[in-house]
Design a protein around this nucleic acid. Structure first.
Lengths: 336, 336
DNA sequence: TCGATTTTGGAAAACGTTATTAAAAAACGA
DNA sequence: TCGTTTTTTAATAACGTTTTCCAAAATCGA
């Protein structure tokens, strides 16, 4: 492996000079500059990022912590993060925490040891939040929350999200406009803020339209496929008729559709259903899913952009960016 | 940040001694050992992995290169890799190459500069293969191919895959057993080996059962949702009746189902369809998809295991592991 | 032309580990 | 008791950059 010192010797300059030239912080003559660059190229020089990171205290690595990369929302988010990172010469360490505080802690520990320059969190457990975030902040770690942001908003940590309550409100209101009055809701795990917010949007929409909020219409899910399936069975077994379902994410909506079909209910003739997220698949399932389309890729990209700005400027990013989603009407809903 | 030298001072020993104790390579008295460990704990010592990596030339990072993390196969694979890595104190850099040789090259370049300890490739373009792999091998980079392995098998690089030809054969034969004789095939991109192999399996099954192989029944896809959709339209527009489709992955099967429905064809009454991969969604779509279930997570895990063994032993891993898949019969297929 | 200023480049320390070599201390054998 | 072996620990040099500070050379102004 050719090192800076090898270039320096061949070009008859000092290693420091070569370093400055390669980094673009050199102020000397363009004659030496060209000569050094030429030699570097000839020798096929590749900087050793480990050495560079150690000295400069910049690892040029950011981490993305997701609860579960196999949930289709997160690969999309991840692409946004990765693209923005790569374009800025950063690499991304992927940490799929499985919603487990122990794994989360383990990941954060190794990220600190690696001196990663920043961390993007989507979803973090309360434990981790209380125990780790303050220390990370004290250590000047740059951080951004995306999608599943914690409720505390007095911290110097940027947040990128959609207005979950508003968008859920829109989705529910859309069903109401279609004439539905008995609308069930399959929520996300209610220990997460986004699940609460979406539920709240559903509630508000009912209330604003003078519809009763009935506990029997609400079932808690997990944001995963099978929980939508199970939720529908619970709802149907309660024997209280409903004509529409608002599922708080697409995956659960898909599970719900499956369960409805199993019970010989037609969609949208018997039951209308609205999802949330707008994952690519939502357009391709049968029937195609009316859903709240989030700008997932854009959220990832924006989060990474804020993080990198923070890293480069040395100032903790603390913007709060709210992106717009929209209800995309497809085949799974029908006027009552 | 507390350093080894801080511990050394407090414990009245040399930094070297502390280093050895912390790494477990210490042979001295257990009295000093206990004392040093105690002090390290008291001070809340966290090793600086950048320094450690620089000196030891082991970054404790592996990279996973995937064509497209948003295709559901890859998050599942990624989980396997990540779990195995984490349990061995390795982190994973995710590289979603988008099948673009330029991005691939850019990623590989930065991975080399970072001195990552190993790379897991699923899918790599021919360009990259020819240009980069020999140099990586010369630099003793440990590598494993998984899922989409290149055809060259004389290289000291381990491979983890299923027998794509055999599994495709099984899928096709299953349709034949059901009485289907006119079976269309939506292939993957034929510049990839796995797509070729699956097509070959389809062909062999037809041949072995004395059925003609008809070019009009074969359409090339891209492994993505929309290509399954388009392929079905092409097939139907050819106006040559068929009763079954073998789609070379689940995503294309889902796209295909969508297109069939749009044309008012019922599944499985009018057309039977078999997919490939066994992504979790395949069970939940309507109708649930008969498909070749691959042990995706296990493939990722195995690949990572081989890689880590190679890294730890210093010997290039060169095993060739073939895992078993199985045809899972669900609702999308029916006796003719 | 000579002092002041700017431009250009070098010297050397530092980042925090690990690895190698060798010395000091302890234990041992006769 | 004294040399020999074994155990325990220290000293020191890396790993390959970046950074800070300073000197030499060149340019400039009057």
């Amino acid at each position: 492996m050719v090192r800076i010192i090898d270039i320096a010797e061949k070009a008859n300059v000092s290693p420091g000079t070569v370093s400055k030239i390669l980094k673009g912080t050199y102020t000397g003559s363009s004659e030496t500059k060209d000569r050094v660059l030429k030699i570097a190229k000839e020798l096929g020089y590749k900087p050793n990022l480990l050495a560079s990171s150690l000295r400069s205290k910049k690892s040029k690595i950011i981490a993305l912590i997701v609860p579960e990369i196999t949930v289709p929302f997160f690969p999309e988010l991840s692409r946004g993060v990765e693209d923005e990172a790569r374009e800025n010469d950063y690499n991304v360490i992927l940490c799929s925490s499985n919603n487990d505080p122990v794994l989360e802690a383990k990941y954060l520990e190794s990220l600190e040891r690696r001196w990663v320059d920043g961390i993007i969190f989507s979803r973090i457990t309360g434990d981790t939040f209380k125990e780790r975030i303050p220390r990370l902040l004290a250590n000047k770690m740059k951080m951004v929350f995306v999608d599943r942001v914690p409720s505390e908003n007095d911290l110097p940590i940027a947040r990128v999200e959609i207005n979950n309550e508003k968008e859920a409100y829109k989705a529910t209101e859309f069903l109401i406009r279609l004439g539905h009055r008995d609308i069930a809701c399959i929520t996300g795990p209610l220990n997460t803020r986004i699940a609460q917010q979406r539920l709240e949007g559903y509630r508000k929409a009912l209330k604003d339209n003078n519809l009763p909020i009935r506990g029997e219409f609400i079932v808690e899910g997990t944001f995963k496929l099978d929980s939508g399936f199970k939720a529908v069975n619970i709802l149907l077994d309660r024997n209280i008729p409903f004509t529409a379902i608002f599922a708080c994410n697409d995956l659960m909506a898909i599970g719900a559709i499956k369960a409805l079909r199993k019970r010989n209910l037609r969609i949208p003739e018997d039951i209308s259903i609205v999802g949330f997220d707008g994952i690519p698949l939502s357009e391709y399932i049968e029937p195609s899913l009316t859903t709240v389309v989030q700008p997932i890729y854009e959220m990832g990209r924006t989060a990474a952009k804020l993080l990198l700005e923070g890293i480069k400027s040395g100032v903790e990013p603390k913007d709060h960016i709210i992106l717009e989603a929209k209800v995309e009407v497809r085949e799974s809903t029908k006027e009552l």
